[in-house]
């Protein structure tokens, strides 16, 4: 049976159809989940897509964290359910405390909208389970607050526990340790700034994001100890 992936929609989210479309073309069953829903029962995975949740007011993700759906997402994540935050979704996950660190204004205050080379640096996560470490991928980034920061203790933990999932080969936003994506300790919660859904078809210029989305669907389909 196709994995059911919930794609969370906040007011201001704008990548939900791209993500749902990409997952659908890869055999997943994507369904949009409104942020005010407090139940996500029956889903096999959750994606928090890009955009400007709640207008990004205060800070990106600062208000989204209080949306009813986030409590359900936190419980789902704690039970081992795969959760991926892309771009704004990554910001939401850090604000919600599901991932450590924070995303700050890009170096030199540059809004970045370009395609960057990346390297997969861990296969432990639900987003990279099918991707060998060292694989180079090229994917679009599109953000103003994408510079990953965390304290030294957190950084050491991320490194020691193999939780840095993706690194920029060309670090344009000034992220600490070239970090483009990280996971939680268990590897089932992943946040990344690049957009795999925008690199999921030849028509879009790249299919490099496909392996990531396939990894997520495989993780979603795998039986979980509840």
């Amino acid at each position: 049976m196709a994995a059911r992936v919930g794609v969370v929609v906040f007011p201001g989210t704008n990548c939900e159809h791209d993500v749902a479309g990409a997952l659908g073309r890869l055999g997943g069953r994507a369904e949009l989940v409104w942020h005010a829903d407090s139940s996500i029962d029956g889903l096999d995975a959750v994606v928090i897509p890009g955009g400007f949740a709640h207008g990004d007011y205060l800070r990106p993700g600062a208000l989204a964290r209080f949306s009813p759906v986030m409590e359900a997402v936190a419980l789902f994540a704690a039970a081992g359910g795969p959760v991926v935050g892309i771009c704004n979704g990554f910001q939401v996950l850090t604000e919600a405390g599901l991932l450590p660190g924070a995303l700050q204004k890009n170096r030199r205050l540059r809004f970045l909208c370009t395609t960057v080379p990346l390297r997969v640096t861990s296969s432990r996560s639900v987003l990279t389970g099918l991707v060998p470490v060292g694989t180079e991928l090229s994917m679009p980034i599109n953000h103003f607050l994408g510079s990953y920061v965390c304290d030294d203790v957190t950084l050491a933990e991320l490194r020691d526990e193999d939780r840095i999932v993706l690194r920029y080969e060309e670090n344009l936003n000034g992220s600490v340790d070239d970090i483009a994506g990280i996971s939680n300790r268990a590897g089932n919660v992943v946040g990344l700034m690049p957009h795999p859904e925008r690199a999921s078809s030849e028509l879009l210029g790249s299919t490099d994001g496909v392996v990531l989305l396939q990894s997520l669907l495989a993780a979603a389909a795998a039986p979980r100890a509840a």
Partner: peptide, 9 residues
């Protein structure tokens, strides 16, 4: 200690 690109600009 946290970089402040806005202040720097």
């Amino acid at each position: 200690g946290i970089a402040d690109p806005e202040g720097a600009t």
